[in-house]
Amino acid sequence: MERETKDGGIMKIGVLALQGDFAEHLAFLRGLGAEGVEVRLPSHLDDIEALIIPGGESTTIEKLALAFRLLEPLRTFGQTRPIWGTCAGAIFLSTDTLERQHRLGLMDITVERNAFGRQADSFEADIHVAVLEDAKTPFPAIFIRAPLIARVGPNVDIIAHLPNNKDNGIIIAAKQGHFLATSFHPELTGDDRFHRYFLSLTKT
């Protein structure tokens, strides 16, 4: 099965490959019949239809993006094409910062780093995500020194919460137009529904 673009070619999806678990995302894209492209330099953005920013260390990814002059090309790319950030990628996509870092500022969300604690507090949990196919089946979310979404702007849709005992729950996934942010790692699971969902954003 191959994912086709409007003119019948194979969909080309970039994965930012400066640091992190980009190979896991590329494997999912292959599994879904899309062509995955490693993006390390601005010129690598030219032929791709959408971009995934993987999990990793956000400070490292930001510094490498700055050093190799990717910040402005990524911002321009985001004006017209979909971007999905997982964990560190979600931090990189966000607007507001609680620390001074080099973020893309494409999504109107505030992301708090290491919000659940250190590695001993990393966890797995089954969550419900209404926008996915077969939405009644829980999605196995994996949180590694994970961030949370502390604030969303008016044009942002919240697509997943982690239940807590206090209020409506903690925001862990959000969408704003063609931008998607998840504080967990669908690329570490055996469940390709989030990747399918992102490809569906790319087609419209």
Partner: peptide
């Protein structure tokens, strides 16, 4: 909701986040 901590997935997951790094 059940939170599962200290699973092998979570342990090796942190190493996966370090890939391509120093």
């Amino acid at each position: 909701m059940d939170k599962k901590v200290a699973t092998f997935t979570v342990k090796k997951g942190l190493a996966q986040m370090l890939k391509g790094g120093v």
